[in-house]
Write a protein that binds this DNA or RNA. Structure first.
Lengths: 183, 183
DNA sequence: CCTCATCTTGTACGTATGTACAAGTACGAT
DNA sequence: ATCGTACTTGTACATACGTACAAGATGAGG
């Protein structure tokens, strides 16, 4: 009668990262403030206990999700660097990359979620800064540190607006603005 | 023994706005996702029941807080419009205004909280758009719609960075960047 | 084979939450 | 003065939460 279900195969490393991914997804959908152990566990298809085993506290679980998102973007940026270096018209290519980036709103949302969370919680600041410095570091060699910072700020603002209004961005206008910011 | 405490003086309108203010403050401190009836009631010095009487659901209470913040900024913008119109050097004045705006991080934080919340919840979008269109509407007559949009995006991005890194902004660099974006 | 550290899982507990509601109070209209 | 509506407040309840933990399962090393 009391049939014993067998445990699943062991793979701690896979579980850890499955939880990080699930945490990231829940944050993107519900926001940092409404992210819970149970939602993440359900999303990952794991029992509740698994979350507290790998991440002692909820803050750890959330930080893992945000870190995963930041790392993922960092990987994307390698492709950005490549394409920007190869492009004949850098501002136009940057606009195209931004358009492609905006296609996945879920992904974009979580980056801004990270910023707002970091603005409130200093512990998250290193993660957020890693993200924020990614693109400026790529642009700085070719346009200078100041212009790199300004261009990124412009993009961040444009993306934020697109996120809120759910509209597409004005590609030619953006390319033009980027061009103006280059010394 | 059973001494009856008298109710407080009635002033529904004052209560409504006290709750909206308290809601705004709690959102700024804890974030939209961690805002609760009880926290808002405590902050307003009112009993729990008052929150549900004036705002049937939690979403209503939060929306009221965000709307209050947006309205407050809208009022600030009237002063911006005045000072920008009077200033001999518009870009420099805009930089100064931004610096002053950044002095109250609490206030700034809630604006971005509003954006992120609006990106997730379409019901908040009108409130966020009211905020986002405020400054562009002021700048457009003098620099054109496109430049107004770009300058605001630049400012939004610069402010976001300052919020995350807790650093002051580079005033001369910002003024220069604004100047570049004007046709 | 046994052992034991590591991992898995279900359950438990105290607390906080959103919302409902009944009982009471104030106050303008009559 | 009374009446009725609008407002106030404390309490109640079902649910969801973070975290703790005991009991089992696994598999590498002896």
């Amino acid at each position: 009668m009391t049939e014993r279900r067998t445990q699943r195969a062991r793979d701690p490393q896979a579980r850890r990262s499955a939880l990080a991914v699930a945490s990231m997804e829940v944050i993107a959908e519900a926001g940092v403030g409404r992210t819970t152990h149970r939602a993440v566990a359900a999303r990952a298809g794991l029992p509740l206990g698994a979350t507290t085993y790998y991440f002692p506290t909820l803050d750890d679980l959330i930080a893992a999700g945000l870190r995963h998102a930041a790392d993922q973007l960092r990987t994307d940026l390698d492709e950005w660097a490549q394409r920007l270096a190869d492009a004949p018209d850098m501002p136009a290519e940057l606009t195209t990359l931004t358009e492609e980036y905006l296609a996945d709103r879920q992904q974009v949302r979580i980056e801004y979620e990270l910023c707002v969370a970091a603005a409130r919680d200093a512990a998250l600041r290193p993660i957020a800064e890693t993200w924020m410095d990614g693109l400026p570091d790529i642009l700085a060699p070719s346009v200078g540190a100041a212009a790199a910072r300004d261009i990124c700020a412009l993009l961040d603002g444009i993306i934020l607006r697109a996120l809120v209004t759910e509209t597409d961005l004005d590609a030619t206008g953006l390319t033009d603005a980027i061009r103006r910011l280059i010394p």
